[in-house]
Computed example of a mutant assay.
Amino acid sequence: MGQRQVSGTRVIAAKPEEIFDLLTDPARHPELDGSGTVVGNRKSSHQRLELGSTFGMDMKIGASYKILNTVVEFEENRLIAWRHFHGHRWRWQLEPMEGGTKTKVTETFDWGPARWSWLFRFTPYPRVNRRNIEKTLDNLQDRFAERASSSGDEGDDGGSR
Rank of each mutant, 00 (worst) to 15 (best):
G2M: 11
G2K: 08
R4H: 14
R4K: 12
Q5E: 15
Q5F: 10
V6L: 07
V6P: 04
S7G: 14
S7Y: 08
R10M: 15
I12W: 05
A13D: 09
A13I: 10
A13N: 07
A14F: 07
A14K: 00
P16N: 03
P16A: 03
E17L: 07
E17R: 07
E18K: 04
E18T: 05
F20M: 03
F20Y: 02
F20H: 02
D21L: 06
D21V: 03
L23D: 01
L23Y: 00
P26F: 00
A27Y: 06
E31F: 06
E31I: 10
D33M: 05
D33W: 00
G34C: 08
G34K: 02
N41W: 07
R42C: 12
K43C: 12
K43M: 13
K43E: 14
S45C: 10
S45V: 08
H46E: 13
Q47N: 10
R48F: 03
S53Y: 00
F55W: 01
G56I: 01
M59F: 03
M59W: 02
A63C: 09
A63Y: 10
S64H: 12
K66N: 13
K66V: 09
L68W: 06
L68A: 12
N69H: 01
V71P: 00
V72N: 06
V72Q: 00
V72T: 05
V72P: 01
F74R: 01
E75V: 13
R78F: 02
R78L: 05
R78I: 02
H84S: 11
H84T: 06
H86T: 11
W90R: 04
W90M: 10
R91C: 06
Q93I: 08
Q93M: 11
L94T: 01
E95W: 03
M97V: 11
M97F: 09
E98S: 11
G99C: 08
G99W: 05
T101E: 14
K102D: 03
K102F: 12
K102P: 04
K102C: 09
K102M: 13
T103A: 08
K104R: 13
K104F: 05
T106M: 14
D110P: 07
W111Y: 15
W111N: 05
P113L: 10
P113M: 10
A114M: 12
W116E: 14
W118R: 09
L119C: 13
L119W: 14
F120N: 09
F120H: 08
F120E: 09
R121K: 14
R121S: 14
R121Y: 15
F122V: 11
T123L: 15
P124W: 03
Y125I: 15
P126E: 04
R127I: 14
V128Y: 13
N129S: 15
N129K: 07
N129F: 07
R130E: 15
R130K: 15
R131Y: 15
R131K: 15
N132L: 11
I133R: 02
K135L: 15
T136G: 04
L137S: 04
N139L: 12
Q141V: 10
F144H: 02
R147V: 08
R147H: 09
R147W: 10
R147G: 06
A148M: 13
S150Y: 05
S150I: 05
G152R: 02
E154N: 07
E154Q: 09
D157V: 01
D157S: 06
D157T: 00
G159S: 08
S160A: 05
R161K: 04
R161H: 09
